Structure formats: structure tokens, C-alpha cells
Amino acid sequence: MELRQLRQFVTVAETRSLRRAAERLHMAQPPLSVAMRKLEEDMGVALFERSARGVQLTSAGEGALAAARKCLAAAAEVGAAARAVAGGETGELRIGFTGSTTFGLLPRVVRAFHQRWPQVRLHLHELTNQQSLTQVQAGQMDLAFVRVPTSHLPGLHFEVMERDRFCVALPPGHALAAKAQLTLRDLAGQDSIGYTPSPVGGLHAASSRLLQQAEVAVQLVQEAVQVSTVLGLVLSGLGLALVPSTNAHYYATSVVYRPLRGLPRDSGIGIALVHRPDSGNPATAHFAASAAQLAAGGVEA
């Protein structure tokens, strides 16, 4: 039994006439009559009572009509679902992110995307920069938010979503908190919380390069992967830390934040969205476009 036969059967049942059904189906009447006879043979029951005035459904035909309509509707849903996935209107996206994006950038982008594409399900995974880049490159993640500057692995596209600068996070009562602004020179010899080194760069590479350029040596007492962990260690009094300034609005309020003046122009940091341009997931392009529009100020969060 084919969908074509079911469509023919439903049309005959609705028109109560083989002639009118054939006209609606744009086919000759004899082949349609043969097709209905063949359908009855396949089902083993009579679907129609035929007379000179046309055709009437038998009780078996009435039951078959309801089932045929459901079957055709389900087939249409299958096609619509396939087209929606192919067009990126539904489906799933796997997205990696660094922990510090959860308070600002990530919620805004996710909210804006969900408003535009509510049928796409998002699976969010907190990862390090290295994990995000390698998993996007391998196709295990569709997109990821990563800290920049970082290594640009082959086959990946980077779109900067947020630009930022380092500031200094200080424990409450720290001597440097008395100053409204600081310079990198002020940090010389201070106990400091750093970032765990990564092969793909990130905050460790950016902060280390900044201190090296200024020829400033700090006393490294502890390292951590995430900004939130670094700030927790600062709050505990272990030392100060260089942190992205945007995080000052979302993390521990007891931590004292001070801006850095005199930073080199090339010392900027930020967040980038990375994905593969050849992604086989059509929703990837929709998410990237939605994020880029939001970053450009074109979407209300």
C-alpha cells in the first residue's frame, strides 16, 4: 500500500464519484477504478458500494477513511519535520562555553536565539578553551564561546562577540585598594592568583604576556582554570588577580576591583563564538547569525 493509493482512496471517498475524483487527481477514470479494486483486494474487504449514481463507502470503508486521513496527515508531518530540520528551524545544537560567559553574554545570546528559533533545542556544556576548540573542530560541538586571544585551529571560524580589558581584583582590605586606579607596576612583587596554562592560549597567555611586556614580576601563589575560581581565591585573601573587567559586575561583591591605566593597545581580551563554516547542522548558521546581530546591537535581549 502506497501513499498515492491512500490519496486516491480519500479523494474518491470525499467526492463519492470516480469521475469527479479522477478529475481532481488529474488522471483518467479507468486507472483510478483499477487502483481502487486493487486496494480492496489488498485489504481483503469491500470499501465501496458502486452504483450508477456513484460510489458509497461501506462500513469498512468509513473505518479505512479515518485511518487513511491520519496516515496522510502523519506523512505530511514527516515531510514538514524534515524540511524544518533541513532549514535549521528545529533540531538540536551542542554549544560549549566558558564559565564566565554565564552571567552576561551567554544568557543574552541564548534568550535572543530562543525567541527567534524556539523549536531548536540547545545543549550547553561548560568547557575549557582547549576542550571547546578541539571538540568544535572534531564536530562534537556545533559552536562554542571561547576566550580570546587564543589559537585559531584550522577549519574554524571566529567571530568576536565581546571585547574587554583586564582589571585588578583585590581582597578586601588590600593596601592597593586605597588607590582609585592602578598600573601594572603597582602589581610588582604582589601575591597573585593566575590562570592554569593552556596549549591554546586564553587568559593565562594574555595575562602573562601583559606582565612580561611591562617587565613586572608577581609572586604567583595559586592557579585556577575559571575566572569564578580565581575570584573565589582572591576573596579568600590569597592574593590579587588580573580578571576581565566585565566580570566585575557579576561576581563576588566583596572583592575590590580597580581599573588599570596605561595598558597597551594590543592587550585587549574578549569572548568569541567559534564554529565550523562547513557544519552539517543547519541551525548552526542561525545561531551564529543571531549572536552576531546581538553583539552588533541589533537585538534586544
Rank of each mutant, 00 (worst) to 15 (best):
H125Y: 09
V216I: 03
N129C: 11
L57E: 10
A138V: 05
A144F: 05
A289R: 14
V221D: 00
R258Q: 07
E223S: 05
D278S: 11
V148Q: 03
A75P: 09
A81I: 05
L203R: 02
A75S: 13
E23K: 04
S132I: 01
M1T: 13
G202Y: 10
V234P: 03
F145I: 10
M36Q: 02
Q131K: 14
A224V: 06
A81S: 14
D142Q: 06
V168K: 05
S198P: 05
R83K: 02
R50I: 03
T90A: 12
A35M: 14
Q119W: 08
L156M: 04
R258N: 10
E300H: 12
C167D: 09
D186Y: 09
G270K: 08
V120F: 00
E92V: 13
G194Q: 09
Q222P: 02
G61C: 05
H114D: 07
V120E: 00
H125L: 03
E223M: 13
A75Y: 08
Q190R: 02
R261N: 07
A35Q: 12
L65E: 12
G237Q: 10
G297I: 10
R19L: 09
A68H: 01
L65D: 10
T150C: 15
L32Q: 11
Q222T: 09
G91I: 07
L238G: 00
Y250I: 06
L238I: 05
A52R: 15
G297W: 07
G280T: 07
E2G: 14
V230W: 02
V78C: 07
P118K: 09
A178H: 11
F48G: 01
H125K: 01
F9P: 04
G189N: 13
L294E: 15
L263H: 01
E126I: 07
A80H: 11
R4W: 08
T246F: 09
Q8R: 13
E126C: 10
L242P: 05
A13Y: 13
G96C: 01
H152M: 14
V10M: 02
H286I: 00
K70G: 12
L105G: 01
S59G: 03
D186E: 08
S132D: 04
E49C: 02
A22M: 00
R276L: 08
T253R: 14
Y257W: 11
S132M: 03
W117T: 09
P197W: 14
P244T: 08
A86M: 08
V146N: 00
L240F: 09
L127D: 00
P30W: 15
E215A: 08
G61R: 03
L47I: 13
Q222D: 06
E92Q: 11
V148P: 03
H249P: 00
A64S: 03
A84G: 06
Q29A: 12
Q130R: 14
A112T: 12
L106V: 09
F9E: 10
I95E: 01
S267C: 04
T15L: 07
F9C: 12
D164P: 12
A175Y: 02
C167G: 12
E41M: 07
R108S: 15
L231A: 08
G194A: 07
L105T: 10
V221F: 04
A75K: 05
A248T: 08
R111P: 00
S228T: 12
A22S: 07
L153R: 06
I269C: 00
R4I: 10
G91H: 06
F113K: 02
A76N: 07
Y250Q: 02
G87Y: 04
A272R: 05
A301I: 08
N281G: 09
D186Q: 11
F113P: 01
G54C: 06
